[in-house]
Each structure stands twice: as C-alpha cells, then as structure tokens.
Design a protein around this nucleic acid. Structure first.
Lengths: 169, 169
DNA sequence: TCCATGTATCTCGAAAATCGAGACTATCGA
DNA sequence: TCGATAGTCTCGATTTTCGAGATACATGGA
C-alpha cells in the first residue's frame, strides 16, 4: 500500500500532535511554579485546581469526589484537606441538604494569591487570542473540544477493559 | 469605557479558555489511567513521559535533568529511577563521552505496554483530525504553539521575579 | 603532570505523604 | 423505627521524598 510521506498534511498532523504534548508539559510547569511559590506539593496543586474548577461550575466538590479525581484514598484526602485548610487555601462547609457531606470552597487568602499569579498569564493569553479571527477561534474551539472528547472516550474504554479502577459516574 | 459583553467574541474566548483547562484535565486523567493500570505513582508517570519525550527528540535525559523537570531532590531521583528500572520501564546507560552522566532510556517491557495503551488513542485522534482541513490544522497549530509560548514566558517571568529557592513545604 | 574546583550521581537516616481497614455519623427506604 | 448505605474521619503501617554528605569523573590552570 502506498503511503505518501512528507506531505503538508503529514507535517501538520505531526506538528499539532507535538504542540499538544508540549502544551500539556508547559501547563504543568506553570502549575509547578505556582506550587513552589506557595510551598505546595503536586497533589495539593491538583486539588486546588479541582476545587476551583468545581466551584466555577457552581457545583462545589466534596472530599469523596476529590479523592476519585486525584486517585487518593480517603485517609489521604482528609490529610490533604487538613493541609490546605490549615494553609488558608480552602474552607470546609457542611452541606445543608445532606449533612454527611462536606463542601469544599476556595478560601480568601488562597484565592487572592491565585489571582495575583494568574492575572498576568490571562493578559498574555488575551494578547495571543487577539491575533485570531472569530472564525479561527471557532475552529480552535471545535478542535480542542473534539480532542478532549477523544481523551475521555479513550479513558473510559480503558477503564471498562480493566475494572480495577473506579468506573465513570 | 464601554465594554461589550455577550458578544460572539466574548463567548468564543471564554469557550476556548475553558477548552484548554478541560483538555489539560482530561489528559491528566488519561495519564492516571495508564499509571493505575501499571501500578505507577504520579511521579513515576511524569518521569516516564519525560524520558520518552527526551528520547523521541534524540536527546536522552539524565537523572539530574529529570530531577529539575519534576522538582525532585537528587535522592528522590535515584529512588525513582531505581523503581522504574526494577519495574522494567527504563534502563540506565553510562554516557561514553562524559562518564559521570547516566543516560536514561526507555526499556522494552515498558515501551511495549505504552504502545499498547496509546495506540487506540492515536487512532481516535487521527479520526478527529480527519475532520479538519489543512488550513484549519494550520490555525490550530499556530494557536497552540502561541499559547505554549505564553505559558513559558509567564513561567519565566514568575521565576525571575522570585529568584532563589522555593519556600519549604 | 598535579591539584583545585566543579559537576553528576548515589547513600542513608529523618520527615512527609499515602494507604487501607475500621469507626462514626447522617441519610434514606421499608 | 430499623437496617442498609453513603460520606467523612482516625490511626498504624508503608512508600516516597528530602537533604546533607560521599563518591567518581571532568575541566582548567600552575
């Protein structure tokens, strides 16, 4: 079978694949920088992001869900939350509806630090986006969203094949 | 000053920003799935990715560089490499040019597992890319590369602002 | 050549994070 | 009300990481 190589198409696919890997690595580095600045371990960083994400979506996490996301045992989650609460990054609130649950909220000292850290980054990314037309951003949106979907499908397929890990909820 | 809200533009920017965050989170989940499948901790996973990346670029890492990337002390790096070597994922080779250095290579049992895991994902992403024209992929490439650059600039700016070492955990 | 200095990795004891089974409390359905 | 279940926490054991030396090789100058 004939497989054309070195076409523009091949090169583009390779470049985009590479871009994605590099982007993920760079994002991680930025996270690391933030964590180091505030004396946080890698787990603490991921936890903060998860808590913030959930709160932005209007659906605060609980220790249980956090543990699933980060693949931590319940004991580790308790220790983790203790740490973050002691450091002033998050706050525990009991759910008024189901009083077994604890809702995790971003607390003030930490939120302010995060703002200070990420605001300059936001300005940079705004500048980048200014170089793209609406239609181009639409294309980017379509692409990344589709890639995300692929990732999730792959993850679910893998989990289904080996029922060792927690299935999706 | 008048700031238009809810324009298509605003919505696009918000969507893309959200896409990027979600993509990073999904990629992380996939990594987690792989790690769980093979009994690897989060550090081990990052280390494997770094080793593989470096090798693909034709410039194998060393324990020292790995420690910098993962923010690990030299002692932890040694333990980490011991672990991965014992599990058959990587291999130590002494550099013939500078015999103080150790070059880290992907070893066979681990490489095969990674292939098996990621090949289906590659097929999925190929399918996604097939839905985009060359020009669209070019746009995506330009966008992600520019975003990566922003991330690195931000990271460097932050590092420059706070020289010296990270505060203690 | 020889020595001083610097770089790269490893050793080892102490500290920290994580695990996992069990306890405790709250909720929900019968 | 009672039993089953869900969500979180406690605590001892295990794993991972830290960080200060120790060791080995490299490099440059006297």
């Amino acid at each position: 079978m004939y497989r054309p190589r070195d076409t523009r198409r091949d090169q583009l696919v390779a470049e985009v694949t590479n871009d994605l890997r590099k982007y993920a690595a760079d994002a991680q580095q930025v996270g690391h920088a933030f964590a180091n600045l505030h004396g946080l371990g890698p787990t603490d960083l991921h936890a903060l992001i998860a808590v913030m994400d959930a709160e932005l979506l209007g659906d605060p996490t609980t220790p249980g869900r956090l543990g699933e996301q980060l693949n931590l045992s319940s004991g580790s989650v308790t220790a983790l939350i203790d740490r973050l609460e002691r450091a002033g990054h998050i706050r525990r609130d009991r759910d008024t509806a189901d009083r077994r649950k604890i809702l995790l909220h971003y607390a003030e000292p930490g939120a302010a630090l995060a703002m200070e850290f990420f605001q300059p980054l936001g300005r940079r990314t705004d500048t980048v986006m200014a170089d793209f037309t609406d239609d181009e951003l639409e294309t980017v949106h379509r692409f990344i969203a589709a890639m995300s979907t692929s990732l999730r499908q792959h993850r679910d397929a893998v989990r289904a094949a080996r029922p060792g890990t927690a299935p999706p909820r």
